[in-house]
Structures are given as C-alpha cells and as structure tokens.
Amino acid sequence: MVITPELRRLVAAARTVARSDREWSMMNAVPAASANPDVPGAPADYVDLLRVVNGGIFGSVVLFGAELVDRMQYSADSVDGAPVVLGRESWFCFGKVGEDPLFLDRRDGSVWGFPDRGITWWQSGVFERLAADLGEFLVDQVFGPGYPALAGVREDDQWQRLLAECRARSPRG
C-alpha cells in the first residue's frame, strides 16, 4: 500500500496549516477524505488516496477528486500527431501540475508526467517517470523537497511557505 502513516501525517498537517492562514486557504484546498469512493476502473492506489484526501489543490499541483477524475480521463486519449501515445487502458490521469497532466501507469503504479518545457504537454516528446508509486510522488514531490523542481517555482512560493510552517509545527521539526 502506498498510503503510509507519513503521508497521512503530511496531509493532516497541510489541512490544519492551510486553514490557519487566509492566503493559504484561498490558494490551496486539502479536502476531507471520501469514506466510500466510487470510481469504477480507477487504480487501487488512487482509490486508497481518496480515503485520505478527496483530491485537492496543493500549490501548483491539483489532484482530481472522486467526482471529477472520470471526466478528466480524456487526457489519456491518443492525440493525432502527438509524439507520446497514451491510452486509457494503460494510463490513468489523476491530476495535473499547472496545465500538464499526471498519470498512473496501470501496469506498475508508477507516476509519470510531461515536464514543463514551454510547449503544450501533448506536443512534447518528453514523458518522464516521476516516482515509483503514488505515495512516493506525494511524499517527495508534493509535500516534500521535490516540489519546487516539479512545479517550476521559486523557494518563496506560497505552497513552499505552507510546507515550511508544517515542518515548524511538527514535533519532528
């Protein structure tokens, strides 16, 4: 299972800290869990995540909630002339960074995306593995030190400040 106690702690801390500051609560959303997520055809790791947080906005990263994710699967459809051929049978779109979609590989659960190269994502020939699984991606790149590189933001980004406040309030420091 990719939903670790550390990930649960990070989500809970971000939820608490986001509510404590007007700017953070306006620019981010850390929703409650979905008790019984109904997302037919979704990978088990994504459904497990919904039991912790039902989507959300984490700075430049958006995770689609149960009510939206099915409508966002068009991102996995093949596009004529695109250098990278996807397909819903192999890829599950669970979110985005800026305007660039994030995918779970249905075969092994790894996370993939199109790094921002200044062109529309489907025109890019650069499609990279971002993490071995959804839990690693979230801990390291959404709630961790990999966020600035993933999102292409400066260190004073508001989500970075929120994460710093989470660390400051943590008993672990």
Rank of each mutant, 00 (worst) to 15 (best):
D21L: 00
G173K: 13
M27W: 11
P145I: 11
G173P: 02
R106L: 11
A42G: 06
Y46H: 02
F114P: 00
F92S: 03
S60I: 04
V53Y: 02
E128N: 13
E89N: 12
L86W: 03
R71Y: 14
K96P: 01
R106T: 04
I119K: 07
P101G: 04
A35P: 10
W121N: 01
W122R: 07
S20V: 06
A44L: 12
T16V: 14
L63C: 04
D38M: 09
P83N: 03
L163A: 04
L138H: 02
A131H: 01
A32M: 10
A33D: 11
G59H: 04
W91I: 05
S75A: 13
D48A: 15
D38N: 12
W159C: 00
A29Y: 08
A18M: 11
W159G: 00
G113V: 01
L150H: 05
E23F: 11
V142Y: 08
V61D: 00
V47E: 06
V53A: 12
R154W: 13
V69S: 01
A14P: 06
R117F: 07
A13K: 07
R169E: 14
F64R: 07
P83R: 04
R19A: 15
G87C: 12
L130I: 05
P31K: 06
A168W: 10
G113M: 12
M27I: 07
A12E: 15
S78G: 07
F127T: 00
L10P: 02
A164D: 10
L49S: 00
T4F: 08
P115A: 04
Y74C: 05
D157R: 03
R161G: 08
P37K: 04
A32I: 06
L49R: 02
Y147H: 14
F103T: 00
P37R: 07
V2N: 11
Q73F: 13
D70H: 12
F143L: 07
